[in-house]
Structure formats: structure tokens, C-alpha cells
Nucleic acid binder design. Structure first.
Lengths: 260, 260
DNA sequence: GAGGGTGTTTGAAAATGCGCGAATAATGTT
DNA sequence: AACATTATTCGCGCATTTTCAAACACCCTC
């Protein structure tokens, strides 16, 4: 009886989510027997769903996160490429120490870091609506830097943002970009967004870029910062040679997150 | 092994909290028999809830902490009385004209207004996480005034908030309060929240209070503003005589939203 | 197309941890 | 002092974590 219809993992996880929305609680045993699959498999599914912030793991099963029920639309949107982003976020978390003040930009990669930030005793500074929601839910104390709402990235930008940010000095700043190339540095296509990222990066702390491997060699409209101004780059795959030498030239520490 | 319908531990604890909100006191014995679970288990639940600061342990049971009754129940509060709040919000919307800039505080009543604000062509200024989410969803352009996150009301407060607000001058400011009485004016129990509301109300626009009828004659820890500083009061029931005369004395326009 | 890595998904079983109940001791309440 | 409530400790059973191996799909190379 192996040729079950709903085969692959994503389909099963989708169905688990659907059932979790109906009943607020799902149990490992039920799911396992209903899908005709090993309990271990269900646990792994629940684990990945929990990592994406969809569910909250409890003993014997999982429940959906309280606020989730309404607005899972962009959570689903943000679930694209989650695996790579989560891996990068875990590697980035290793750079955070208890007592730090960390700033996060409004990228989905930084959002993945926000999801696991409760593992450290830190104060945070965020500039995005989703990261704020995430930290509010997990009880991490934070400052939100306000400003004009930018629907594209669900972030805050503009004059108010720059002025407020000028008063803050986090220890570590985590940010992402649309592209990174040797000559152009870190780039992004949206100008207000570029300004906000610059304000974050100019706040004096250690600047840490979070980039998945697809960003290497790409270039968008405007430069956020040249390579020289950042301290660490966390990614999920070994970058091409020309990028590696640019990093070495700028004395940037490269961290490649591996699957584990 | 009887445990059939009861949920896992966290679900039980949440239900205990829910019941503690309804009755001010819950007893170990009742909970144990109602959940079909050992008394010892209930005690452990109460202990963890007490550790999280939700409940206060007393002999034979537990009582919910006063400050918690607002804090934790924010979403319950939002769900409670929605009808009255929606009615008030509809009446308030009539005061908004296309082209206005309107500011909303972080109250659940102002949130009800945010939900229907897309009916006007306005720009908004908000100070609460939920209102921001609401406006983002409905596509209303807005500024979020950032600051230190305050879990109680899911709002932003503090130095950054005051400084940013000092630069903004909305046409109309909608706010709510915990109580309104003739001598004390508008009051609220949470000081940072009071500071934020003052910053909003001092921004120079028309100040409009949104109060459901239960707030009349009540008084909380700190005064936000005396009655004299507001221009309009929108409510859902005719206030008692002493409040009416206070309003008349301060030259405040009173709007009573009716069921329609 | 056969062979052979390499990676991914799933199942199996041992080791560990957690939730819960029961009994007993300690403590508070009246 | 009599009694109710709570703290402690132990043990059982289920859930979870870990680790290892089988099954399967892919991607090369030849």
C-alpha cells in the first residue's frame, strides 16, 4: 500500500496545516495513522512547519499560532525558500550573544532570524512589520523604528525612520540585499528601502549581511553600501571565486551555513 | 489513562486562564474534576502560569493578576464589545473627510476605525501594531510612529515615540481611554501609554475621544488630559447627567452613535 | 543505458526526557 | 488540634530526540 495518492512531503505538510486551521490542535498519532505514514515522519513535518512559524509544537502534537489564523497569506509568501533562509538564520544566531542589542532590516531573511531570536536574551531593533509581529509574539523586547509604510517590503522608511535611527546604536546589524557584486557592492532596486538600510548600517555596530547564494554576482538599481563597510557575510553556499576574492580584499569574514 | 478530549498541557493552561478571566478566582478542585485530571497536575499548571506572571497563587486555587486582566486579554478585549466599538467607529468615520490626515492611538476602539478607514481617501498616523497591520492590509497609506514596544496594548511608547510625534501634525486625532470623569478627565492606568496618548493629543489637531458608555464615571491611575482639551466625544449611549454637564461646560461636542 | 556516487526522504530502534498520577511529608488555615 | 492544601519524591508510560540504515530519485561519467 505504498502508492498512496498524496505523496510528497510538501503536500502532506499543506494538509497538516489545513487540518490545524480547522481544529486548533493536531496530534502526532492521528496524523500518522490518517496519512498511513510513520510517526517520525509526521514529527519532522511538524518541525519544519514550526520553523516556518506556522505551528507551535507541543507535547503530543502541535497547535497553530494564535495570530496566524487570519493572516497566513504573507506568511505563506514568506515561506518561499524557507529552508535556505532558516539555515542562514541559524548560522547568524551563533553570532548573537546574550546581552547584545541587535538590529534587523525588513528582509525575509532577517525575519527568519527574528523567529529564532528568543533563544538569546537580547533587545532588538526592527524596521519591518512582520519582524515586529514575530518578536511581539515570542516576547522579545524590541524597539520599532517607525516611518512611512512601504507596502513592497512591509517596512518603514523615510525621514522619520532616518531621524529615529540616528539616535540608536545597536551592537550588531543584520541586513539583506537583492544582489552583491564586487564592483557594485550590496544593491537593492527600491530607493526608499536603500535609504533605510543605509541608516541601519550607519549606526555604528557590527554589520552582518545575510545573503542566500542566488544573490552573488547580481546587481540591482542602487548601491546600499560598498563591500568594505560590512564585517561579516553569512550565506548558504560557497560563493563564486570573484566574490570570494572581493570579500578577502575587503577583509570580510565569510560564514557558509551548512545543512546541519 | 482517561485523557480523551482534553488537550495537551498548554491547551489546558490556556483554558485555565480563560476561566480565570471570567471568574476572578479558580479553585484547584474544580479545575481538576472539570478537566478530568489529577489535582497535582492542575497545581503544576497554576505554578507555571504564576511563574509567567499571569496568575497569583492563593490557597486552594489562583486569582488572576490585576494588571494581567488587560494585558493578556488584549485580543479577548478586542473581541468583546465589538458591536459597540464598530458602531462608535462608524460614527467617527463621519467626522473624517477626504484629504485629512488622521492619527489613531493603540486602543481597540481606534482599531475598529482603522478597519473601515479605507472608505476615505486619507493618510493615517498610527501607534499600534494591530492598526498598522490593518491599514497595511487595506492599502491605506500611513506612518507608524515607532518606539519601545509595549506588550500590554501592543503599542509603541517612550522617548522615540515622543520625539517622532513632535514632528507630526495630523488634522484629527482619535483616541480612547480607560475612564472619563468630570474632575479627573480622561484617565488610563498605564503610564507609558499615557505619555504616548499625550504626545498624540498635543500634536495640534482636532482631538476626538472614542469611548463606549461603560467608561463614564470611571477613573484610572493617571490623567491623560483634562476634559477641556478635547473637541468631540463619540460614544454609544447617552452618558449620565453629571458627565453631560461636564461636557457642556468644556464646550465638547457629543455624538451618540445609534444602532443603525 | 549500465554503473556508481551523492543526496533526500522515510522507517526502525535505542536512549533520553517529559507529563502525569500516587503516596507521603510538610505546611498553612481555622 | 483537626483538617485542607501544598511540596516532595518516585515511578510509569508515552513522546521526543538521535542515530543508523533502507529505498528512491538524480546527476554524472563512462
Amino acid at each position: 500500500m505504498r502508492s498512496e495518492p498524496a505523496g510528497l512531503a510538501p503536500a502532506r505538510q499543506q494538509e497538516i496545516l489545513r487540518r490545524a486551521l480547522a481544529a486548533k490542535l493536531v496530534r502526532v498519532k492521528d496524523l500518522a495513522s490518517d496519512f498511513g505514514v510513520h510517526e517520525m515522519t509526521v514529527r519532522r513535518d511538524l518541525e519544519t512547519l514550526a520553523e516556518q512559524g506556522m505551528l507551535e509544537r507541543v507535547h503530543g502534537g502541535a497547535r497553530l499560532r494564535e495570530r496566524m489564523s487570519e493572516e497566513l497569506s504573507h506568511q505563506l509568501r514568506a515561506a518561499r525558500n524557507t529552508e535556505a533562509k532558516a539555515r542562514i538564520a541559524r548560522a547568524a544566531l551563533a553570532l548573537v550573544e546574550d546581552g547584545d542589542t541587535v538590529a534587523l532590516d525588513a528582509s525575509t531573511t532577517a525575519l527568519a532570524l527574528a523567529r529564532i531570536l528568543h533563544a538569546r536574551k537580547v533587545a532588538a531593533i526592527v524596521s519591518g512589520l512582520d519582524a515586529a509581529e514575530e518578536l511581539a509574539q515570542s516576547g522579545v523586547p524590541f524597539e520599532l523604528v517607525g516611518g512611512t509604510f512601504n507596502a513592497r517590503a512591509r517596512s518603514f522608511v523615510g525621514v522619520l525612520f532616518a531621524e529615529a535611527m540616528a539616535r540608536l546604536h545597536p551592537d550588531k546589524v543584520f541586513f539583506s540585499a537583492k544582489g552583491f557584486a564586487a564592483e557594485a557592492g550590496f544593491t537593492d532596486p527600491h530607493l526608499p528601502e536603500v535609504g533605510a538600510k543605509q541608516a541601519l548600517l550607519g549606526s555604528g555596530g557590527m554589520n552582518i549581511a545575510l545573503l542566500d547564494a542566488s544573490k552573488f554576482g547580481r546587481r540591482a538599481l542602487a548601491t546600499i553600501v560598498p563591500a568594505g563597510e560590512i564585517d561579516v557575510l553569512v550565506t548558504d553556499g560557497v560563493p563564486p571565486e570573484e566574490v570570494r576574492s572581493a570579500l578577502a580584499a575587503a577583509d570580510i569574514r565569510l560564514i557558509v551555513a551548512d545543512a546541519a
